[in-house]
Amino acid sequence: MSDLKATPDSPDSLGTHGARRRTALSCMAWAGAGVLWTLSGGVPGSTLLGAAQAAQTDSRAFSFVQISDSHIGFSKDPNLDPASTLQEAIGKIQTMPARPAFMIHTGDISHLSKPGEFDTATQIIGTAGLDVHYVPGEHDVLVDNGGSYFERFAKPRDTKWYSFDQGGVHFIGLVNVIDLHGGGLGFLGDEQLAWLQQDLKSRSSSTPIVVFAHIPLWSLYPAWGWATDDSSRALALMKRFGSVTVLNGHVHQVAQKVEGEISFYTALSTAFPQPAPGTAAGPGPMKVPADTLRTLLGVRAVNYVPGNSELALLDTRLAV
């Protein structure tokens, strides 16, 4: 994976696959359904998700949901009230055909790390009735080097970064928004990487791995800070595993890349969209019309079926 950072993606290299995906998504948006992504042998493909297929699950299978970039406290064009769109996102989760086992939030819960913003977010997210595993975004660690975030969101047994197991899948939550260096990108640091090495050491290579962190762990668009300085060191530790899925936020849009056995995905925001890499002067909020906003926000369900060594991703938009 060491070549990953050496060959950063240009916007174009999001590629024909991404273009096809966007086309599929827009079609599905029109049809009022979703796209089911399956990962098999490192090559993703897409099929339509129908009610029958959604219900067709192995009894040992489970799903979880990813939400991201809720930015509670933001109040500008194109979204004066991200609390309401977060509530709508939770509504989508509540009506999913299969109840998710848990939720992950890939950061930027708040806009300015204010206690009231965290309170509002957790109150709304709590209405899903799911266990939630958080990782911070850079907007969540503005106070006390993240101290107030970790006091609130870290679970008693966990350090800043943590792992847990569910149904045979090993989940790892990483922190890449602390101690950032001038001129740099997202950053994991030696201490976290040493922990990761230890954490993975005892796992068999057939264990499916799901890694989640706020800033992309791949070079999506470094010019806009959409990459992590030392992610190649983390990815090298995962190279021996047969199935690795990396879930990130930060960029407020769905992007993806497959590198060997590692599949990378970024998620939609529940607050506002950001432009595709390089298509605007900067990565700030896209000022889309009010009637378009909800078609660019959403939640993600990830389905795992034991024995298939497949993870299926389903992105659902708040409106079609």
Binding site: G182, G183, W224
Partner: peptide, 12 residues
Amino acid sequence: YSYFCSMHPRMT
């Protein structure tokens, strides 16, 4: 005096 934005460290 060099400085940066600690949220967006590409900003220097």
